[in-house]
Design a protein around this nucleic acid. Sequence first.
DNA 1: ACTGTAAATGTTATAACATAACAATATTAT
DNA 2: ATAATATTGTTATGTTATAACATTTACAGT
Lengths: 165, 165
Amino acid sequence: MKNFDTVSLSFDTNNHDHGRCIHTAMKVADKLCLSRSVRLTPARRRVLELIWESHHPVGAYDVLSKLSQESGKTAPPTVYRALEFLMEQGLIHRIESLNAYVGCAHPAEEHAGLFLICTDCGCAAEVHDEAIDQAIVTKAATLGFRPEQRTLEVRGTCPDCRPNS
Amino acid sequence: MKNFDTVSLSFDTNNHDHGRCIHTAMKVADKLCLSRSVRLTPARRRVLELIWESHHPVGAYDVLSKLSQESGKTAPPTVYRALEFLMEQGLIHRIESLNAYVGCAHPAEEHAGLFLICTDCGCAAEVHDEAIDQAIVTKAATLGFRPEQRTLEVRGTCPDCRPNS
DNA sequence: ACTGTAAATGTTATAACATAACAATATTAT
DNA sequence: ATAATATTGTTATGTTATAACATTTACAGT
């Protein structure tokens, strides 16, 4: 049921308490970095917050321009380094089909996610499904392929954007 | 068994008769375009051939430079237009995680593929699996999400590159 | 507290990927 | 032949990402 909750939150961008959403994400990030003895520096932390400002995947240059607005001239490497760190720590995911980044709702757990991306409102929900994982692993094994990392992005229409039918 | 054959071909880049591979792909493309009354012009055809030169996904600018070598100065839009056309016709697929393009082995059929990409040799095999398709569709339905298009790319090690274990 | 080392950040430049806009040419249907 | 449409050429620019090297900051050991 937990996954479903996550998804509900993600899709329901107008009605959920997103401030709380961000707050929780940041607390989890703080705790996680502390426990791993890696440094969630102010710059990295701010980038994470900016990404969490919505459930829409955010481009690196969007982050960059916000950063520039609030902290004066900032160069791309600043953002990309922060993104790289956050990805390594599992705090964000990259949406390959959008060249954009989105906060991860449960960074502590190892996971291979599935992103449902609404082409109407632009929101992206990260969900998990054992049956999908299993099917992919099985298929790969059949072919003698050893999977290491994966990208699964589904574009379509989310429940909030769908004319009720 | 057909999928397995396809995959074997794709992974077995050194041993299969790739000339034949290309030849078949081009014939299918010709036939398909004819049947659809769309024009596989020389430029488009050549781009398709270049992409089929290997089972490795090819970047747009790789295609561009080959085209420039053989036909004199060529500009990016030439390549991107051809790629767009070939994608529309299902003759190639885009690998989002690599910003690269790869030939489609069965362009006539509607399909949502899965790409197994070897991080060692760089080859990409397109496979299909009913169980995976089903699991994704089911999950989406459960969440009220209407899927329209999807990207599924698995990076890992292919059988040819794996130390026999 | 001092200092050497490693980590992080700043800075400049450029690479890599992609499209907008408009002109010219080729194809097709009539 | 000609008008309408599709394709290609051309120039410029937009977007995404990284290389390379300088500087600053944090931290561990003394």
